[in-house]
C-alpha cells in the first residue's frame, strides 16, 4: 500500500501552513520527513489521518481517498499525552481493534499486540502511570498496530525519550515495518535517527517540500541550502555554521 499526497494545502484561518505538498510514500518502505518545528510536518501527518481538514488537494491510500479507518494509523510524539491516564493500557489498545469482537478475542488480540512490541501481556491491566516513557511508546505502537494499518505515521516518536531508550524504540519500529511490510512516514528533526530508519527522505521547510529522494542521496549530497543547514546542526557534527534566530 502506498500513500500519496497530491497537491495538499492546509490553512488555519488566514495562515496557509501547507503549500500544495505532493509526496509519495512507496509501498513497504519508510520515508523520513525532516524539517524544523513549525514547518508543517505534523500538519501533514494529521491531514493524512483526517485530524486536520485539507483545503485543497487529496491524500490517497492505495489510490483511494484517505479517511478515518482507511488503514492509516499514527503514533504521537508525547507518550505522556497519547494514552488516557484513566484507562488500562489493555483497554486503550482494545479500543483501536476494528469490528465487533468478543471479549476473549479482544483479550487475545491485546496480548498478541503487547507481545509483538515486547511487553509482558500480563501488564494489560496496568494504567499508563506505572509505565516508563519508552514503554508507553511501545503501547502507543501496539494501539496503532491494532488497527491493522497498511500505512503507519510516526510523528517524532522518540524526541520525548531518553537517548538510551530511543534505540530500543527505533529497533522495534524497523522490526515491525519489516515483519508487517508496512509503509511508513517517519517524522523527525533528528537527521541521524532518520538516516538510520528511512529508505527515502523528504525535507520540509515553511510548508513546502524542498527536497526529496533516496536517503543516501539527500543526506550525503544535499542540494537545498536548508538541508545543508540541518546537516550542519547535527550534534557531534563538524561544521559550525551558525545562523541567527530560530
Amino acid at each position: 500500500m502506498s500513500m500519496r499526497f497530491e497537491q495538499v494545502s492546509v490553512r488555519f484561518g488566514r495562515t496557509q501552513v501547507l503549500h500544495e505538498v505532493s509526496l509519495e510514500v512507496p509501498d513497504g518502505s519508510i520515508m523520513g520527513l525532516v524539517g524544523e518545528s513549525g514547518s508543517g510536518k505534523s500538519t501533514l501527518a494529521r491531514a493524512a489521518v483526517g485530524l486536520v481538514p485539507v483545503s485543497t488537494g487529496r491524500v490517497l491510500v492505495d489510490g483511494v481517498p484517505a479517511g478515518r479507518r482507511s488503514g492509516v494509523q499514527m503514533v504521537f510524539q508525547d507518550p505522556y499525552s497519547s494514552l488516557d491516564p484513566r484507562m488500562s493500557i489493555g483497554e486503550s489498545i482494545a479500543e483501536a481493534i476494528p469490528g465487533r469482537t468478543s471479549k476473549s478475542e479482544r483479550a487475545g488480540e491485546v496480548a498478541r499486540l503487547l507481545r509483538l512490541v515486547h511487553l509482558d501481556p500480563g501488564r494489560a491491566g496496568q494504567r499508563p502511570g506505572s509505565l516508563s516513557g519508552g514503554q508507553r511508546q511501545r503501547v502507543a505502537l501496539a494501539r496503532a498496530l491494532a488497527g491493522r494499518p497498511q500505512v503507519l505515521i510516526a510523528d517524532e516518536i522518540t524526541s520525548a525519550l531518553d537517548v538510551s531508550v530511543q534505540g530500543a524504540v527505533l529497533n522495534l519500529v524497523r522490526e515491525m515495518q519489516r515483519e508487517l511490510g508496512l509503509s511508513m512516514l517517519f517524522i523527525s528533526h533528528n537527521l541521524a535517527v532518520v538516516r538510520y530508519v528511512a529508505d527515502t527522505v523528504a525535507v520540509m521547510s515553511h510548508g513546502h517540500i524542498v527536497e526529496h529522494g533516496p536517503a543516501a542521496d539527500v543526506l550525503e549530497n544535499p542540494s537545498h541550502r536548508y538541508t545543508q543547514e540541518l546537516l550542519a546542526a547535527v550534534p557531534g557534527g563538524t561544521s559550525n555554521t551558525l545562523t541567527k534566530e530560530t
Binding site: L51, R69, Q73, F76, D78, S82, D84, A96, G147
Partner: peptide
C-alpha cells in the same frame, strides 16, 4: 487537545463515544 483523543478519532470512534469514554472521566 490530548493525543489520546486524536488516537481514538483515528481509531474511528464517534465524538459522543469519545466524550463519554475519554473526555468526561478526565
Amino acid at each position: 487537545a490530548r493525543d489520546y483523543v486524536a488516537a481514538a478519532e483515528i481509531a474511528g470512534l464517534g465524538r459522543i463515544r469519545i466524550l463519554v469514554r475519554h473526555v468526561l472521566p478526565n
